[in-house]
C-alpha cells in the first residue's frame, strides 16, 4: 500500500487518539481474499482523511465463533481480554469489516464492560457519502452495471441494517437488482453459527449453492457482499457453477474503492 496503516500503539506513543478504531477481524487479517477488503477499507479511510487506527497484533478474535458454537467460557475470555485492550486505549467508536465482529462488539460486549459506538463498514461508507466526503468518481465506472446485493444475516436480520449497503451501491448509478429472498427474508450463505469451520451435515444440497443459484438467476455482473464469510461461500458457489468469468463477487468496500480509483 502507498501509505502506512497506523496502529493504536503508535498513536498512543505519539500522545494522539483516533476518531475511529478499525476492527479488522480474523478473516480480514488472515484470509487472503478478505485481506484485500481490509486494505480497501483502509484506503477509503485514508482517502477521506479520517483519523483512524488498527490494533494490529494486539487484536484477537472477538469470540463470536466460540459463542455461536456454545462455548461461552471461551467467548467471555476473548471478550474480556479484548475489552481490557479497548478500554485501555480509551476507544469510543469502532468500525468493523465483518458483521459477526460488528454484532458481537455492539450487542454482547456492553454487558461485559465494553460499551462503544459500533458501526459496520457499509454504514461508514453510507455516512461518508451522506457527508459528501465520498463519491463515486475517479475510478472504474459501474454505471448501468447489474449488481445484486446479498444480505449477511448478522448485519440484516441480526441488526436491521438493510439500507446502508444499498445506499453505498446506489451512488454508483448502477442497476441494482434484488434477489427473490432479500432483506428480512434474505437467505443465509450457509456459513453462520460456526458453520464456516465445519463440514455441513448430511443433506441434498449445500446452502451456498441454493443461494448462488438465486443470485445468478438475477443475471448480475457483480454480486455485492458485506461479510468475509459470505464472500467465501458466494465465491465458492460461483466457481462451482463455472461463472467466474461472467460474475464477480465483490465486497461493498471493494466496489467503493474501485469506483473512486483507490
Amino acid at each position: 500500500m502507498e501509505f502506512k496503516v497506523p496502529t493504536m500503539a503508535e498513536l498512543m506513543a505519539a500522545g494522539e487518539e483516533p476518531e475511529i478504531l478499525f476492527w479488522v477481524g480474523c478473516a480480514g487479517s488472515y484470509d487472503e481474499r478478505a485481506q484485500k477488503i481490509t486494505r480497501d477499507i483502509c484506503k477509503i479511510l485514508h482517502h477521506v482523511g479520517l483519523k483512524y487506527a488498527v490494533l494490529g497484533t494486539e487484536e484477537s478474535c472477538t469470540g463470536d465463533p466460540a459463542k455461536r458454537a456454545g462455548n461461552e467460557f471461551l467467548f467471555q475470555m476473548q471478550a474480556m481480554t479484548n475489552i481490557e485492550v479497548l478500554n485501555a486505549y480509551n476507544i469510543k467508536k469502532i468500525v468493523t469489516g465483518c458483521p459477526h465482529c460488528f454484532n458481537t462488539i455492539k450487542n454482547e460486549y456492553p454487558g461485559l464492560g465494553g460499551t462503544y459506538e459500533v458501526i459496520h463498514h457499509s454504514q461508514l461508507i453510507q455516512d461518508l457519502i451522506n457527508e459528501g466526503k465520498l463519491k463515486a468518481e475517479g475510478g472504474e465506472s459501474f454505471k448501468g452495471k447489474k449488481i445484486t446485493y446479498h444480505d449477511p444475516c448478522y448485519l440484516g436480520r441480526g441488526n436491521g441494517v438493510y439500507e446502508a449497503p444499498r445506499k453505498a451501491l446506489e451512488v454508483l448509478d448502477a442497476q441494482l437488482v434484488e434477489m427473490k429472498r432479500c432483506k428480512a427474508n434474505g437467505l443465509c450463505c450457509g456459513a453462520g453459527g460456526a458453520q464456516m469451520f465445519k463440514e455441513p451435515e448430511k443433506g441434498n444440497k449445500d446452502v451456498n449453492i441454493e443461494r448462488i443459484e438465486e443470485a445468478l438467476a438475477t443475471e448480475p455482473q457483480f454480486i455485492a457482499a458485506g461479510c468475509p464469510f459470505c464472500m467465501t461461500m458466494l465465491n465458492d458457489g460461483v466457481k462451482l457453477k463455472d461463472k467466474e468469468q461472467e460474475v464477480k463477487v465483490l465486497d461493498i468496500a471493494e466496489i467503493t474503492a474501485r469506483a473512486n480509483g483507490l
Binding site: 500500500m1 487479517s29 494490529g56 458454537a69 469451520f197 465445519k198
Partner: peptide, 27 residues
C-alpha cells in the same frame, strides 16, 4: 472441526491455525 476451531481461538486468538504474530501482515 468445531473442537479444532475452538482450540485455535483459545491458542491463537483466531479460528484458524495462524500465528498471532502474523495478524498484521495484511498491511
Amino acid at each position: 472441526s468445531i473442537n479444532a476451531m475452538l482450540g485455535n481461538v483459545e491458542n491463537n486468538g483466531a479460528p484458524w491455525k495462524y500465528s498471532p504474530a502474523d495478524r498484521f501482515n495484511w498491511a
